[in-house]
């Protein structure tokens, strides 16, 4: 499935000439594991109160989410043709009014965890015990609101929440390690009362196993990923945040996908 998601991302990016392609490519396996193996979300229940929920807090990775939702038949495949084109349907940063299956409007960083907390607190009042997954970026982890949310979620022991940190090692203008201490994710999550596990963020089986673990505490999964994963001309580069997929890059990319 991740191959198909990457193909859709590449084609949409080619059509729209939009950026943030690398940010979408790093979360492909995370989304596959969540939507196809772990979370109780389908085309039949995406509006039901007791569904599991996935919030893409790093909203600039939206293209991967749109592709995944299309493959889940939650949004029509044709909507992808209308990604970030004039008069289109799907915007670069997520507008929850634009399509089905989008749990929150994100794009401004550091909002998803608080919204997840609101989902859980209200679910508990309604005796609904569903899981809430939040995907945040390693750059996003620098936002102050993330610390407020982790403190609160940990203190309240909201074990319905699983945070997946997409550790793709680049933020908008630099390698993350050149901006912040990147060796403290586990320590910080643990200190706030989370169970923490680091996994290969491009291994769907390992991700699935980690995501399926039950805990009395909220869970954090550090998914070690590569920005721009899957394509030689952008993998593991800062430039993948901005790269435009012209026809030649798409041709190379599609060939590389076939040969995986």
């Amino acid at each position: 499935m991740h191959k198909k998601i990457r193909e859709l991302i590449l084609k949409c990016a080619n059509r729209s000439k939009a950026s943030h392609v690398g940010s979408a490519l790093s979360i492909v396996e995370i989304l596959e594991a969540l939507y196809f193996n772990v979370a109780n979300i389908s085309k039949d229940n995406f509006n039901k109160p007791d569904r599991d929920r996935i919030i893409l807090s790093k909203g600039h990775g939206s293209l991967a989410l749109y592709a995944t939702l299309a493959l889940k038949n939650i949004i029509p495949m044709e909507a992808l043709d209308k990604y970030l084109v004039d008069g289109g349907v799907l915007p670069c940063h997520i507008d929850m009014q634009s399509a089905n299956g989008l749990e929150a409007s994100t794009g401004s960083l550091g909002h998803g965890l608080g919204i997840a907390e609101g989902f859980v607190l209200s679910n508990r009042l309604k005796n609904i015990n569903s899981r809430i997954f939040v995907i945040i970026g390693d750059g996003e982890f620098q936002e102050g609101s993330i610390m407020e949310a982790l403190n609160s979620i940990g203190s309240l022991k909201l074990n319905e929440i699983t945070v997946i940190l997409d550790n793709n090692k680049f933020q908008a203008s630099a390698a993350t390690k050149d901006v912040a201490d990147v060796n403290n994710y586990e320590k910080i999550f643990s200190a706030f009362g989370f169970d923490v596990e680091s996994v290969d963020g491009h291994n769907v089986d390992l991700l699935t196993k980690a995501l399926n673990k039950k805990s009395q505490k909220p869970t954090a999964i550090i998914a070690n990923t590569l920005k721009g994963k899957g394509f030689s001309f952008m993998e593991d580069t800062l430039e993948s945040h901005y790269i435009k997929i012209d026809d030649e890059k798409m041709k190379i990319g599609l060939t590389e996908l076939e040969n995986v």
Binding site: G114, A116, G118, G144, S145
Partner: peptide, 14 residues
């Protein structure tokens, strides 16, 4: 900041 996001999540949840 978190309170406002939590409120939003609660409101989205009815």
């Amino acid at each position: 900041q978190n309170c406002m996001s939590v409120a939003s999540g609660m409101a989205l949840n009815g």
